[in-house]
């Protein structure tokens, strides 16, 4: 595995076949996930970020299909090549998902402890009953929940508690990679802060790497070590979070940051002109060129290739650097 990454994504393509044509939801995305890091991935709705998160675990649903690329998981190999049994083995154990809106991802007719036990029993049979109970208790405590939550059904829990249960399940086998898809999108700010603190402490405790997918720039600024920006199925920029916010390179990243209202100063709210393209009809060249204030002559015809500099990757004709 190159440069010790836990997960390496190479030129991943996920397409949807629809009657109207092929939708390139993820179109040649490449990045590394380093040991122990929190990598944030932002994008607007329709940018392909959630499709990609699910495709990394091959949990995408038809009509989505993997149209190319590889996802190399340290010690396992290409996840895209695994058979069903191989996939079953690594899911949860090595590569776990903390889904969006735990309200809909928990089984409504199963007690929390049974949902936690399910994964543990399947992957690591052999614990006797007491050992399993102790493990479930410890796992609930790890995410800040009382042991009696184990005996409850999801509808008896608040939104924040459900999201904690989802984190408890996702981390129950100490996976090396956690994929968190909008883990706090439906929660109030205070609860969101608590849940993110929980996710961070569990992740640090088990030494996992996290890929956090979301749309909230503020949340990403606070939680991520590095951050990627997706637009129209492409990863347009990837950089350490501090660099990205202080010195965004891609015009889309810059405009996106400027459009986020802050408490620092009152100003006329900036917005990005135009609308994101529908992925069925992506503009030729750079997909952002119709909305880009810096577009120049190659932008409407040539697709910019990712170039890398000082640990940052950007796909924009303004930065003709070394190919990444």
């Amino acid at each position: 595995m190159k440069n010790g990454a836990v997960l390496t994504v190479n030129d991943l393509r996920v397409y949807y076949d629809t009657p109207a044509g092929t939708v390139k939801a993820v179109d040649g995305v490449s990045f590394d996930l380093r040991p122990g890091e929190r990598l944030g991935l932002v994008g607007e709705s329709g940018s392909g970020k959630s499709t990609m998160a699910l495709a990394l675990m091959r949990m995408h649903k038809p009509p989505a299909r993997i149209a190319g690329g590889e996802v190399l998981l340290d010690g396992v190999g290409d996840v895209m090549e695994l058979d069903d049994e191989g996939l079953r083995r690594i899911r949860l154990d090595r590569l776990a998902l903390v889904p969006q809106g735990a309200m809909n991802s928990l089984n409504p007719v199963m007690r929390v402890r049974d949902q936690l036990a399910d994964g543990i029993r399947t992957h690591e049979p052999g614990d006797d009953r007491d050992a399993l109970t102790a493990r479930i208790r410890a796992q609930l405590a790890r995410v800040g929940l009382d042991a009696d939550v184990g005996g409850k059904f999801p509808h008896e829990l608040s939104g924040g508690m459900k999201q904690r249960v989802a984190i408890a399940i996702g981390t129950s086998l100490s996976p090396s990679v956690i994929i968190a898809d909008e883990p706090t999108s439906a929660l109030d700010v205070v609860v969101q802060r608590q849940v993110m603190e929980t996710l961070r402490s569990v992740q640090e405790e088990i030494g996992a790497s996290v890929l956090i997918v979301g749309h909230d720039m503020g949340l990403m600024a606070q939680i991520a070590d590095r951050m990627g920006v997706m637009y129209a199925g492409k990863l347009v920029e990837l950089a350490p979070v501090h660099d990205l916010f202080t010195n965004p390179q891609h015009p889309y990243t810059r405009l996106l940051i400027e459009s986020v209202p802050t408490l620092m100063a009152k100003r006329a709210l900036a917005s990005i002109p135009g609308a994101p393209p529908t992925l069925i009809n992506v503009p030729p060249g750079c997909p952002f060129h119709p909305r880009c204030p810096s577009a120049f002559e190659p932008c409407d015809s040539e697709v910019p290739l990712p170039t890398s500099q000082n640990g940052r990757v950007v796909s924009c004709h303004l930065y003709p650097g070394e190919a990444a």
Binding site: V189, G218, A221, Q222, I257
Partner: peptide
Amino acid sequence: LLVSSIPQPDPSLPW
């Protein structure tokens, strides 16, 4: 509490 829990889009500010 509400104000300080808002994640600010600036990594150098505390949350």
